[in-house]
């Protein structure tokens, strides 16, 4: 089988698995909950970013951005932890890994196929969050031109364009985590362990990122560039931080994929 048809069938498996579907439904529902809460609440929104939520009330499309920003710290990485943690450990637990590893398919290809479907799943998840946010926002609130952080306004096409860019960025951030999840997944035969460990990674990174005394460490953290969505909402966009985010995730991805490959290659098939 060619790598692309393998990837397509693996992706089909990932997307059809009931647990993963439920995760996507939860992600799609989250903007609805946020939107309803905003619609029903009276008075000025409070919290760390009142401006972000206040903007939704005047323009529903903004909910797409807000949902992505609010779900990035925990819910989206949790979803990716489940999918990537399951990737190899799930096959081990099901007893199917030995077949995968003994068929004349290079183990690197098994890894590539699994990783690719994780990355695509992440992109699907991010697009669902943004799309759901924009649709819910359009239903619950008035819709119009979106005012960017810099004070300029963009029309519908510009808004959707920026939303897609932000979703792609979110998918790349999740791809960095997916590589870590793949590696952890090769270390254990218990999928739940791999998922929980992977889910803990961004949590720990964000806690470290919140401690000012560790500022020297911050630029190296996986999650340091996870929240720079605001830089997509400026005119002109702040490409420097976006580029740094992409490079950081690429660095994490190559390191952990190479670790996962080494682990899978040296792994005793009969175990």
């Amino acid at each position: 089988m060619s790598t692309s048809s393998l990837t397509a069938s693996e992706l089909g498996l990932v997307l059809r698995r009931r647990r993963n579907l439920i995760l996507l439904v939860v992600l799609a529902a989250a903007p609805l909950i946020i939107g309803l809460a905003l619609r029903l609440s009276t008075g000025e929104p409070r919290g760390p970013n009142p401006g972000l939520l206040a903007e939704v009330a005047s323009n529903g499309l903004f909910l797409g951005f807000s949902a992505l920003i609010l779900l990035t710290p925990f819910f989206m990485p949790l979803t990716m932890a489940v999918v990537s943690g399951d990737a190899i450990a799930g096959e081990s637990a099901g007893g199917t890994l030995r077949y995968l590893l003994t068929v004349p398919v290079a183990r690197g290809r098994v890894l590539a196929v699994k990783y690719t479907s994780c990355v695509v799943f992440g992109l699907v998840a991010a697009v669902i969050v943004v799309a759901s946010g924009m649709i819910v926002g359009a239903l619950l609130f008035p819709v119009g031109d979106v005012t960017l952080l810099s004070g300029q306004t963009v029309g519908f096409t510009g808004t959707v364009g920026r939303a897609l860019l932000m979703a792609s960025y979110a998918a790349v951030m999740l791809a960095g985590l997916a590589a870590i999840g793949m590696f952890i997944s090769t270390l254990t035969e218990v999928p739940a362990t791999a998922m929980a460990t992977t889910a803990a990674v961004p949590v720990v990174a964000q806690i470290l990122g919140a401690i000012p005394q560790l500022s020297g460490l911050h630029p190296w953290l996986l999650t340091d560039t996870w929240r720079v969505y605001g830089d997509f909402l400026r005119e002109p966009m702040m490409l420097e931080t976006i580029q740094r985010g992409l490079l950081t995730q690429a660095a994490y991805a190559v390191i952990f994929l190479s670790l996962a490959w080494a682990r899978l290659t040296t792994r005793d098939v009969t175990s």
Partner: peptide
């Protein structure tokens, strides 16, 4: 332009117009 996490303050001078914007 002064950048905050999800906010921006701009001071723009374009000819005779001086604008201050706080998102």
């Amino acid at each position: 332009a002064l950048y905050g996490d999800l906010a921006e303050t701009d001071l723009i001078r374009d000819g005779n117009d001086v604008w201050y914007w706080n998102s």
